[in-house]
Design a protein around this nucleic acid. Structure first.
Length: 293
DNA sequence: GTATTTGTTGTTGC
DNA sequence: TGCAACAACAAATA
C-alpha cells in the first residue's frame, strides 16, 4: 500500500501517540528479513528508556529520532503498516518490531516482509536518510530537472520512469497512474518523446497529486483521518483502477489495464493517447483546478 | 493449484 | 559505461 502520503499517514499515527513519550521496551521478531543488517543489541540499548523526540517522512522512508541520538528508520515495503495498540498488546505473527510506552504499543506489521528497519546512533543524520532525493514539493523539483531526467531515460516508458525514486521520490504505482491520467499522457509513451507542454503537465500533476494526496490521506496539522482512504475523492482514478468494468471519472469511457514497466498499470484510453497530441493553435482550456484553500 | 499484489535491489544483456 | 528489462524476495488473497 504505502506510497508518499500513506507513509506520512502511518508516521503521524505513531507520532501522535508517542512523541514525548518514553519507550520502556522493544520487542522484535523475524530478524532475518525486516531487521537484517540491524545491530539489534545496539538498537534495543539505545531506544529502551529513550524518549521519542521528532519524526519525519521523506518519500517512502520514515525516521523516528529519540533522545540520546538514536535514529530509527522504517520502510513499509509493499505490505507494511504501523499501528498503535494498547500497551498490553500481544504481538502477532507479522509484527516485526513493537515499541512499548507506558500507554501504547507501537506496532510495525509487514506480512510480505519487503519492508525494512534501519538504526543509527549519532548526531549526524545517517546516509539512508540524507540520500533521499529532494521532495516533489520542494523548490529543487523543477521542470528543468524533470525534463533532464526524461532525456536521460528517453527510451523507457514514462510509467516506469515515474516510479524511479531518484527523481520522483515517494511516487508508487497508483500515484504514477494518477499523475499520467491527469496529465493525459499514455503510460507506454517513451519518456524522451514527450513534448515540452507534456513535460510541463507531468511536472504540474506530480506536484498536484503529491500535495493533494498528502492533504487528503495524511490530513492537515494535527488532524489524522480515521483511515487511509477516508477522504480521497471519487473523482480520482484511485477508486476505479481495480474495479471490474471501471470507467474513467472524466470521460466515463472504459479503463484499460496492462503490465507496463513491470507493474500493473491502469489508464483511460479515451483520454491518454499513444501519440502526442498535435500542437493546437487554440490550446485546450485547462481542466478546472480550484485553487481554493 | 494459479495468478495477483500500491516496492526495491541485483543481475543480465544491449 | 549507462540504460532497460526482469527475476527475486514472501505471504495473503481471490
Amino acid at each position: 500500500m504505502p506510497e508518499l502520503a500513506e507513509v506520512e499517514f502511518f508516521r503521524k499515527r505513531w507520532a501522535q501517540a508517542a512523541t514525548g513519550q518514553r519507550v520502556v521496551r522493544v520487542l522484535t521478531h523475524d530478524t532475518k528479513k525486516i531487521l537484517r543488517g540491524v545491530d539489534l543489541p545496539a538498537l534495543r540499548g539505545a531506544i529502551t528508556g529513550a524518549t521519542l523526540k521528532v519524526s519525519a517522512a521523506r518519500a517512502k522512508q520514515m525516521a523516528f529520532r529519540f533522545s540520546g541520538g538514536a535514529w530509527l528508520g522504517i520502510h513499509l515495503g509493499m505490505s507494511g503498516e504501523l499501528f498503535v495498540k494498547p500497551a498490553n498488546y500481544t504481538p502477532e505473527k507479522h509484527d516485526h518490531l513493537v515499541l512499548l510506552t507506558a500507554r501504547h504499543a507501537l506496532v510495525f506489521k509487514d506480512p510480505r516482509m519487503f519492508g525494512g528497519v534501519e538504526f543509527h546512533l549519532g548526531s549526524e543524520p545517517p546516509r539512508w536518510w540524507t540520500k533521499i532525493a529532494p521532495a516533489i514539493s520542494s523548490e529543487a523539483f523543477t521542470i528543468e530537472a524533470v525534463a533532464a531526467f526524461l532525456r536521460r531515460r528517453a527510451r523507457a516508458p514514462i510509467k516506469a520512469v515515474l516510479l524511479m525514486q531518484e527523481r520522483f521520490p515517494g511516487v508508487g504505482n497508483w500515484m504514477a497512474d494518477e499523475i499520467l491520467w491527469r496529465a493525459a499522457i499514455h503510460p507506454t509513451r517513451q519518456a524522451g518523446s514527450l513534448r515540452p507542454a507534456e513535460v510541463r503537465a507531468l511536472w504540474r500533476e506530480c506536484r498536484s497529486v503529491a500535495r493533494r494526496a498528502l492533504a487528503t490521506i495524511a490530513g492537515r496539522g494535527d488532524y489524522l483521518p480515521p483511515d487511509l482512504n477516508a477522504h480521497i475523492p471519487r473523482s480520482w482514478l484511485f477508486w476505479h483502477r481495480w474495479e471490474d468494468g471501471g470507467r474513467c471519472p472524466k470521460t466515463k469511457k472504459p479503463l484499460a489495464r496492462a503490465t507496463i514497466g513491470g507493474r500493473t498499470t491502469c489508464w483511460s484510453p479515451a483520454r491518454q493517447k499513444r501519440v502526442a497530441r498535435a500542437a493546437s493553435p487554440h490550446p485546450k482550456k485547462q481542466a478546472s483546478r480550484p485553487r481554493s484553500r
